[in-house]
Write a protein that binds this DNA or RNA. Structure first.
Lengths: 336, 336
DNA sequence: TTGAAAGCGTTACCAA
DNA sequence: TTGGTAACGCTTTCAA
């Protein structure tokens, strides 16, 4: 369907100003000096005709769309969106715009969306975790520079990094153990997500390091959503397991777990302690405020952007991959 | 910066297949019959060369980018993102892609972003609330079809709708009053947002309708964020006002308010009831689960899309503007 | 059924 | 300093 209100073209401006399109273009881009009188008329004509350059034509000609494709998993994830904000802020400053698509954790859909992104000739692609293989991403990177988050990747035009979820999970466990907890339940995330596996490993290994027995009944798999946390705790409680603390695979899971306890009038942290992972914004406002692992998501975003920029021949800012950190709030208590 | 890995062009495919570009194009688009043998070779060549059409060139030629520009206010708002998901789902099905930009509630920035969107020749624009004037939007709509949410608008190529926040606020108040509450505090949103004003009006008028006096000390302005809710309740409490219920201008505000009460060991709903507005996803998982007004945000999104599609000459789906509704959970109790 | 060629709105090269 | 013009990669008339 054609856009009916077809807008003024550079050619029309040139005609009206009595100069060549080349001159108008030069004026617009400051590519060369334009005589003062011509400059004046061109300026006036542009004003009168309300001319705006067609970025499409520019992109086609210049071979650059000044657009970055971002493959996220869900538009509604507070987790990804915080990262996206970081990407947006630095990319915008560099004159880029974000083209965002969601893959919904489905490898096929992800690949299809990246294909779409490339078809639209984005200058670079950002991939936020997901389920594609590294090989797939490397393959795509032959066509466009890629920065991936949530996986280690080292290619000619692809780079990927992730945060040390394992170490952070260990430190969460250390806190719990140091506070006297011995029987600690773990609500895992989907086992096909690397982060989820790393966190589980942290749970396991820290237990082992402290010569604490891992009771398989105490680890149950959630889905990284509130509902999974709720169900998990229901299950834990129903099976009459004894435990004094819950390590939730992520904050959403912690929210669900917390509600399950509330439903049975089990107090947090008086009766049971909870620790989360992610430090979503709202975790500061839960009751009690959630002790959790902070993921520096915004900074991850700026870092991604600063990694990508140089791959586009742009000057990039500082790239220091931020560390995960423990943020102690009020959902964990010391027991004796 | 030119993209170095310049990809195969239709011309190259044509050459390799020994046909004209026109024929390849016709094959690609099914625009005309192509002889079987040529079809075969073209298919093969496309495969071999891994040819992908350049959407940029297509768009320039066809005058349509199959892209919808969406002006949101913040990438991190659960409120807007739910709507965005609705838009995305139906637009994607119609073969469109979303170009999302944030205005951060700043009229100038919003206008600038819309300008950018138009410069990129999006086929349509969606504006999610914000602070631009109706006149500005109408002006933009001369250049591109626009659907706006959060304001009533009726133009040739612009349409805007909003939900009845006033009526919903009234019904929230009715619930509170019916449950025996008489001294009800209200935490307002920013007074420059229409929704915030409508909700406040609902509060006022319902009080009046029940011949309940409005105590100005009981209404305090928040910022539609958790922090505002927290501060507001601190202020309310500090000034020794007596009240049995809080009507929070939105759910985030309710979260903050709830935490402020928790801090002082004031129980919800036993000591004080809280009702929110929006029904964000997490409101189902707060402790206690929040009684609130549900905004059918996803449906708003699909509705927006179905309003826009016909303006693009596409078949649009059903457009019925969904109503706000009260969802009763556990943060309000009856008092005597 | 097919090809030649014009054109979408730019930019940049080559001459002048 | 300026203009003419080819080119970016595609679609679509118009003829054949």
């Amino acid at each position: 369907m054609k856009n009916d209100s077809s807008s003024t073209t550079l050619q029309e401006v040139a005609d009206a100003a009595g100069v060549s399109p080349a001159t108008v273009s030069r004026f617009l881009n400051g590519t060369a000096k334009v005589a003062d009188d011509k400059r004046k008329t061109i300026e006036r004509v542009i004003e009168e005709l309300n001319y705006k350059p067609n970025r499409l034509a520019q992109s086609l000609k210049m071979g650059s769309t000044r657009t970055i494709g971002v493959l996220t998993q869900s538009l509604e994830s507070g987790y990804f969106n915080k990262t996206m904000t970081g990407i947006e802020d630095v990319m915008k400053a560099a004159g880029y715009v974000l083209l965002i698509m969601s893959g919904h954790w489905h490898a096929d859909e992800e690949a299809e969306r990246v294909e779409l992104l490339i078809g639209r000739r984005v200058d670079g692609v950002v991939i936020l975790t997901g389920n594609m293989t590294d090989a797939q991403i490397l393959q795509f990177s032959k066509r466009v520079p890629i920065v991936a988050f949530g996986r280690k990747l080292e290619g000619d035009r692809a780079i990927g990094f992730s945060l040390d979820n394992y170490a952070a999970a260990c430190s969460a466990m250390e806190l719990l153990i140091e506070q006297g907890h011995r029987r600690i339940a773990f609500i895992a995330g989907p086992s096909d997500q690397e982060d989820a596996r790393a966190r589980l490993a942290g749970y396991r290994d820290t237990l082992a390091r402290h010569k604490l027995e891992l009771d398989p009944n105490l680890v149950v798999e959630g889905d990284f959503q509130e509902s999974g946390g709720l169900l998990a705790v229901d299950q834990l409680l129903a099976s009459k397991q004894r435990f004094t603390a819950i390590f939730a695979g992520n904050d959403l899971t912690a929210y669900g777990a917390r509600l399950a306890l509330y439903r049975r009038s089990i107090r947090v942290p008086d009766d049971i302690s909870i620790i989360g992972f992610d430090d979503l914004h709202s975790s500061m406002y839960t009751t009690p405020p959630l002790t959790t692992i902070r993921q520096p998501l915004y900074e991850v975003g700026t870092c991604i952007a600063n990694l990508l920029l140089p791959m586009l021949g742009q000057p990039g800012g500082a790239v220091d991959i931020p560390a995960l950190s423990l943020v102690v709030r009020e959902s964990v208590r010391r027991i004796t």
